[in-house]
Amino acid sequence: MIKGKVWKFGDDVNTDVIYPGKYLSITADPVEMAKHSFETVHPNFIKEAKPGDIVVGGKFFGCGSSREQAVTCLKHFGIKAIIAESFARIYYRNAINLGLPILVCKGISSKVNQGDIVDIEFETGKIKNTTTGEELQATPLPAFIMEIINTGGLIPYLRQTAKK
């Protein structure tokens, strides 16, 4: 179970907005990447968001560049999960591969507000907005994807498989 405060964004949030291109030369320091999350367009995020928070997006979250820093920065900021109406495919895969829980939930935009507290049962996709009491159903992930995320991402997963 993941419980956290919602940071809400709109539709079509692109990876340039999540992680600006000028910081792409940072390739190896996730702590530094985290400091630039949403920096140019939503500067209050880094100031006010807290580790343990949850990011909620509208449709097509994470569109644009394949840069996985746009997932790494949020993961190392301490964001516990990302939920959106839909995702751009590369962003979705990057989150899985980096072990950051990610769920598609139709209707989430209209059912949660900035600052609401939500409970997420990742395995079943059940989401409860504890602020309003409303319940939502996200699409649960296939078993093999759950396994990658639960192992901590593709690298630990491959390390484990290599050992077997």
């Binding site: 996985e68 591969n97 593709l154 491959l158």
Partner: peptide
């Protein structure tokens, strides 16, 4: 198709 860096590490491996 485009993919991310970690996923590519998996391709380089397997």
């Amino acid at each position: 198709a485009g993919i991310g860096g970690t996923e590519m590490a998996g391709v380089w491996a397997t």
